[in-house]
Design a binder for these strands. Structure first.
Lengths: 120, 120
DNA sequence: GGAAGTTGTGAAAGATTTGTAAAAAGCGGG
DNA sequence: CCCGCTTTTTACAAATCTTTCACAACTTCC
């Protein structure tokens, strides 16, 4: 039985919620369970801030009174697995939480410098 | 369109659900009943993760509260019978279950080294 | 600039899951 | 019953994942 797969998708990154898989630039990346749940929560709210408390509750089942750094560590490992885009994809909102930013083409500064006219 | 005998098939491995038989590289392999049921369940969902719980329920009829290592032992024997491909075919998804991966040609890295150009 | 609080990070410790060999337990036909 | 084969359990070893720790780096606010 084939149902259309639910996934997050942009030019560089695909997350398949059904297969629990991640691809970055066509390359398959293995995620651990916690990494996957964390990324799922973030991409499910792509573009929106997800507060630390919400992540700790949804992914870890922690209450509001638990102090841990495990979220930070997992964020770090996710960023790593997202390769060069890690920093761009997962944004830190200081004092609040994190936000997964859908891919946006970088300004083309280095690619196509503004009018290098032959000349002088 | 007619639906011929139901079987799983790839360049190295054929599983015939009707005959309850397995061939690896043209060689017939005898499977015990449990081995066969396990392999059937896995190949029937080739490419997809099958959670431990599902296997324990489908193949053994166990409920979610039963702790046993018999699944692991059977996986091991299946891998053995699949010969050199055992590890490649049956993938462990840590903390989740197993996945039967259809055959894929290995990357040809060693076969055709990237351009050794004569020169300098 | 300095204090207080927050996040980043590598490494270590802890916890859980899976692999495996070998022994024990089941099972069906003689 | 007894035998041969299959299946399950047992008991560790090994692999993998998760969390903590200690400290560096960074933010914010005064």
């Amino acid at each position: 039985m084939m149902m259309s797969t639910s996934l997050y998708q942009d030019p560089h990154c695909v997350v398949d919620f059904a297969l629990a898989k991640l691809w970055v630039d066509r390359r398959a990346i293995t995620l651990t369970r916690k990494e996957y749940e964390l990324l799922s929560t973030l991409t499910a709210n792509a573009g929106e801030i997800v507060p630390r408390g919400v992540l700790l509750r949804n992914v870890w089942g922690y209450g509001p009174d638990i102090r841990t750094r495990t979220l930070d560590v997992h964020i770090r490992r996710l960023r790593r697995k997202l390769g060069d885009y890690g920093e761009q994809y997962i944004e830190t909102i200081f004092g609040v939480g994190y936000r997964f930013q859908p891919w946006r083409e970088p300004k083309a500064f280095t690619v196509e410098p503004p009018m290098l006219r032959a000349t002088a």
